[in-house]
Design a protein around this nucleic acid. Sequence first.
DNA 1: TATATTTGCGTGTTCGCACACGAAAATAAA
DNA 2: TTTATTTTCGTGTGCGAACACGCAAATATA
Lengths: 356, 356
Amino acid sequence: MVRIKDIAREANVSEGTVDRVLHNRGGVSKHTEQKIRKILERRNYSINPVASALASKNKYEIAVLIPNYNDTDAFWKAPYLGILKAAEEIKSFGINLAIYNFNQFDPKSYLKAFQKLIKTQPSSVVFVPMFLSETSQIVSQLETQNIPYQFLNIDVENHNNLTYVGQDSLMAGTIAGKLMHLSATTNKYLIILSRENRTDNNAISKRVKGFQDYFFKNKIEHATHTLKVDGFNNPLNLTQSVNDVLKEHNDISGIFVPSSRISAVANNLNNSAKFTLIGFDNTPQNVACLQRETVSFLISQKPFEQGYESIKIISDYLSKSKKPKQKIYLPIDILIKENVNYNDMSQNLFEEDVTI
Amino acid sequence: MVRIKDIAREANVSEGTVDRVLHNRGGVSKHTEQKIRKILERRNYSINPVASALASKNKYEIAVLIPNYNDTDAFWKAPYLGILKAAEEIKSFGINLAIYNFNQFDPKSYLKAFQKLIKTQPSSVVFVPMFLSETSQIVSQLETQNIPYQFLNIDVENHNNLTYVGQDSLMAGTIAGKLMHLSATTNKYLIILSRENRTDNNAISKRVKGFQDYFFKNKIEHATHTLKVDGFNNPLNLTQSVNDVLKEHNDISGIFVPSSRISAVANNLNNSAKFTLIGFDNTPQNVACLQRETVSFLISQKPFEQGYESIKIISDYLSKSKKPKQKIYLPIDILIKENVNYNDMSQNLFEEDVTI
DNA sequence: TATATTTGCGTGTTCGCACACGAAAATAAA
DNA sequence: TTTATTTTCGTGTGCGAACACGCAAATATA
């Protein structure tokens, strides 16, 4: 590998001069700069990132704002783990990471966590823009302070975010529609929403729109009934309302839950074998349903990779000035009983830390 | 971050002594070793990989043996790109990589490329064990020379390979069966094999077995007709034999091609709309068929990631002594028209190298 | 022409770790 | 007790790049 020293020798200048050219520090005559640039090109020099990282005095702080998770609603654990993995990898490159949590149902906690975050004056912020108006507030604070920011998992249009890392929710919904059409025995479907996240989390509404789109665009007759429940954490309530609807509309053969909580429906259905259930995300509960075949398909959005990639991207942006694409759409995974066990790459590839 | 220097100071020893403990170099009294180990533990020390890589004199050579690719049979391009990406990442960690190619239909070229490879005495070999008996020869050479080796994409049992990185072909076939059953209108299917890769590449036969398994295990009646063609590169021949069979067995509604060449079938079918076609791998040609809906499903095996992960794994093994799992099964992707464009992460996440 | 200022560039130190060399201390052999 | 040997450990150098310091040459000002 070519080193600065080699370039310097060939150009008959000192290492310092080459360094000045490499970093556009100025203070080099046009003549020598040209000479050095030519040699850099010809020898195909690139900075050794390892040595560069060690020597660099630049330190960056990335702040992450993400909903917390618990046992009943485990979705946010996977992105969290991906973030941690990336943090580990970039730590020795002088990039540190701080994670701030909020309650995904409480806009106040979202703002509060952000206020705590912004006090640390991070170099960049990666966050899940869960609530619309609060997000506007946050964004304007970030922009006045000139802090680059990135949206994770949820996309909000008309902001100057560096990137969005997540799924194309519209298309994910369309795929749910296609699978439903393929699998269900009638063309009458039930869509179950929670009042809680209906207004703000527009990934959910995009999924529903995509679902309907599939039928419209392919000119397939269908009918949907939409049920709004008070939340998925009250089994009695849920059981009652869902089964009531199903009794009333007894030609419904498919149930679509455009959030990550389909397991709550599957586990409280009177006669689940009669229905095709399609939902989102490979949470442990959902995967269990897939395996016992009460759910037919899960659409998954590579949550682990979302976390991991978002951090790697912002890290490359900060330390190597690599400009990412504006939208980074991750794969739309179709999960069934047979492939779900192979899908999660967040598990270690290595044996328990054995030193050989 | 805690440094060796910090540990040394706390233990009242020199940095050299801490270093000896960290690398089990010996020459440290039991007493001081214990003392140092305790402090390392308590301070949660871990080696700074960046500084370590820079200082280390250890250089490793990884040799890769992989089929070449061309425009009509592009499957091996994706693993190749994954390998290149990984090579780039580990280069500055003192790990170099050499790629050797062979013709996937010519065992002689396989052996010949290996003989050239082994002369360079690499630290480790990653290869695609395409032919059975030749693979045995290769393996015994590697084992007598004590060179750790890894299988990529194709798994061969009863060898002491460090890992296999690829797909669970049996399960992938089962999934093809399930999708076929879901999608095709009758339970009569055609399976098309090529004589060329029939004997040696056992991924293909495992896929076929998995396909049949789905119906047996779920007690679903079905019948398959198997057609062996002379290769997929002769369109006239292929068209003739396939359409002949379909005319003769006019209740066939699904065609399963357990190799990466389903596009050759799809593009030469008289009445493709009548059939559900299921094949493997997201080659450009196959993806085109998916998009024009002549193929219904592709099972994909994350070829890019196979290449990438295999190199990262062997790199961690060599430079950090991390022992990988014996089988690393990558996700079994179900691709349809709607999600195929989102599936390939080998494309850059960044804009054309813009320096901002 | 003499002095001040700017431009262009070389030198030296530092980052955290790996590893070689050799000195002091401990132990064994004489 | 003296000498030889082994054990234990400290010191110093280098990996490649980043960056501060400051000297010399070139140019500007008096």
